[in-house]
């Protein structure tokens, strides 16, 4: 059911854990199936220098967290913000349609962590371009 890449990131997840005194933390819950993802970012000079996660969820959720943290490392905040759930899913060589919402969770976790950082710095939080990401879910909840 899962691609080799998903299984690889599920079985050998990169960046599991927490960052002490993280600059940005984003905890998101999945409205579709009730799972939870927590993203920790270390940010220096507008660059994500470290990213870690903790996830309570399915294989796709764990693999998406792992891949998303990989993708944002080394990126500027602006670039990291642009890492979409599709990019995460593509990097994982695809997710089953019903599991796309798990990658949405990763995108939202990253966004929340970035905004947590921005708010702490006294900056305006960025606005979700696609606040109704649940729409993806409706599209994918077919069976």
């Amino acid at each position: 059911m899962y691609s080799d890449k998903v299984m690889d990131h599920f079985k050998n997840p990169r960046n599991v854990g927490e960052i002490e005194n993280a600059d940005g933390i984003g905890e998101v819950g999945n409205p579709v199936c009730g799972d939870i993802m927590k993203i920790f970012l270390k940010i220096e000079n507008n660059i994500v220098t470290d990213a870690k996660f903790k996830t309570f969820g399915c294989g796709a959720a764990i693999a998406s967290s792992s891949m998303a943290t990989e993708l944002v490392r080394g990126k500027t905040l602006e670039e990291a913000w642009e890492v979409s759930n599709q990019a995460v899913a593509e990097a994982l060589e695809g997710l089953p349609p019903i599991k796309m919402h798990c990658s949405v969770l990763a995108e939202e976790g990253i966004h929340k962590a970035i905004n947590d950082y921005r708010v702490k710095k006294g900056l305006e939080p960025w606005v979700e371009k696609n606040p109704h990401s649940h729409e993806h879910d409706e599209m994918t909840c077919e069976h």
Binding site: Y2, C33, C141, H143
Partner: peptide, 21 residues
């Protein structure tokens, strides 16, 4: 998934596997 990796076949009542979530 981990149990399957060890050759153990089982099932779960988790939303994530239910097809209907």
């Amino acid at each position: 998934l981990w149990l399957d990796d060890e050759g153990i076949c089982a099932s779960t009542g988790s939303a994530c596997t239910s097809g209907s979530l």
